[in-house]
Amino acid sequence: MAEEALSDEILMTQYANGDQTSFTILYARYEKKLFGFLERRLNSRHKSFANDLFQMTWMKAHQAKRSFNPEQKFSSWIYAIAINNLRDYLGERRHDVEMASEAELRSDEKIMNAELQSITKQSLQMLEGLLNELPPVQREIILLSEWEGFQSKEISSMVGLSDAAVRQHLSRGRSKLQELGRKLR
């Protein structure tokens, strides 16, 4: 189907004009990624919030669909909405919004065998501990960069900071992680 080859931005523009097919394709592209993104930021006690936040993100995206700028990347736009929701919805429980536990971070493709699972478990446990040592903004930026694979410019539009500030947070966050890692060894 020709529409499936279209970029996210074109699909979003068509969706904003009322095209259901474009929405369905766009939704299929992002539902897993977005849900995973939200789920990874919640610990096991608040895992059920991922459903609420996921629904809220799409609801707000729908409400704001006409304000979408096609020159902007769709992924940055929808993730920015998700991040704002996460901050707003769980703002009162910020201390609980820690990194997901090792079990929550585990994904099927990462666990190929028992040996690898053991290594992954240890690494993720260590990573979780290290990330929780970072300030919330730095942790969020590191996760968006290292885990979700976003560029600093994209992250800057999501978190509302300048590109330079994001780069600075990334650099400091990485240095701190290295430093913490060395202390653990």
């Binding site: 539902e31 849900f35 995973g36 059920s48 991922a50 996921f54 629904q55």
Partner: peptide, 12 residues
């Protein structure tokens, strides 16, 4: 990671 059980119905 997604659609499983309750999250799948939320997605639908």
């Amino acid at each position: 990671m997604m659609p499983h059980d309750s999250s799948s119905s939320a997605s639908d």
